[in-house]
Design a protein around this nucleic acid. Sequence first.
DNA 1: ACAATAGTGTCTATTAGACATTATCGA
DNA 2: TCGATAATGTCTAATAGACACTATTGT
Lengths: 247, 247
Amino acid sequence: MPSAPVRPSRTPSKTALPRPLVLVDVVIFTLRDGRLEVLLMKRAAASGEPFADAWALPGGVVDTGLDADLAACARRTLRAKTGVDAPYLEQLGSWGNALRDPRGWSVTTVYFTLLSAADADLGAGGNAVDVGWCPIDSERVRPDLAFDHAVLLAAALQRLRSKVEYTSLPGYLVPAEFTLSELQHAYESVLGRPLEKSAFRTRVLSAGMVEPIDGVRAGPTRPAQLYRLARPAELVFFPRTFNPPRE
Amino acid sequence: MPSAPVRPSRTPSKTALPRPLVLVDVVIFTLRDGRLEVLLMKRAAASGEPFADAWALPGGVVDTGLDADLAACARRTLRAKTGVDAPYLEQLGSWGNALRDPRGWSVTTVYFTLLSAADADLGAGGNAVDVGWCPIDSERVRPDLAFDHAVLLAAALQRLRSKVEYTSLPGYLVPAEFTLSELQHAYESVLGRPLEKSAFRTRVLSAGMVEPIDGVRAGPTRPAQLYRLARPAELVFFPRTFNPPRE
DNA sequence: ACAATAGTGTCTATTAGACATTATCGA
DNA sequence: TCGATAATGTCTAATAGACACTATTGT
């Protein structure tokens, strides 16, 4: 393994190089009509900016005068576009290279967040113009996004789908008060496969993820007990994944 | 955490703000004498640089002329300090704020890697001077590191210990050929608790993580079958964590 | 033969999945 | 009463943990 250091010209440049551009992008998921959707922005047309008129993830340059840290920048972006604060915000990772932005070497740190359908109602506080929800239908996810945002979105989807197998993440896609059936449907929508009711209920209840509250959801059939997240601030980890579907 | 933004209005600054400093740091773990250790560097004394003479994680400013992307920068750092290439390199996350570096708003993207004891032999290709292995003994991990590196190291440790519960990560801490007992000891060293032999063997074998090779490790007792990683390039995920120790 | 470690088998507890059964509403 | 969904119970399969037992070396 240890081969000789190369080092003809691997000496770090002593002359001050231009600093990379530092950005933050946010992947905002929601669940509407049982379908997973992501928030996209239409970039300004003919503005001199790169990727004019293309769709992109919300985000932008870190404002060192405004943003206390990277997460604050993500929260500022989220608030500007949706008008709500993030109930859950997770750092997905960072992408940095010379080619992803035509303006030069850039680094973006990507966050992802989950909103309930109620919070996802645009126009309430965000600037609804040039912002829209895009359904995640198939496996192919919008290859036409600006920059490398198709890659970022695919990574966020992969992280989301992976963590849904063993965490309480979909608890942030349902409203504050929900029935267990609704929660199960949120899991199934993200996973793309049905789950068994009995096993699902045992899992979320025995993990202490949810707790019943006073009240039921009435309907044309037997009313369902309402629940809420027991500790909304903390993600719950299950000791196992759901079993894979039988082949 | 830093509180209210300095600026009265939340309007993004139109005047071009100074770009943040962009850095990469690398947390390099190894297992020596059954003990987890991390590579630290002694910063130059009286050089005008911040945190002179303090211990720090290896890393530094991204060289946009040299580094194709963030991971390449991490690999360059790793190679410069140890003389080896990374068999496994994972991005841990990014930390960015105005206070972590006295030179101003900075972002560091942290990678972590695992080396076998053989690769961890300093002096072979790396610059052994001002570089040393620091044992991870207790829960308290070197609060005296430069910058916020104590935080970064703690995060790396947490990620490592967490993923050991359900992945093949310790496969990178043992030499290319190993016995199942040696692999089990690697798991136990990171986890800090003993594992049951039978269950451990069933798990790693049925997951296809390892495969037997010709040869045994001879010793003063019954020889042990040698194994290697079946697909060294891919991390294996187990469908369950190890069960927590009985209370 | 003995000590020591490698490797396997047996039993039990836990739990996910499949599926049946009961419960409770509106119409 | 009936249809529909909520909620629970029963059975089975899979597997981790505990632990006993066998196997194979050097001395």
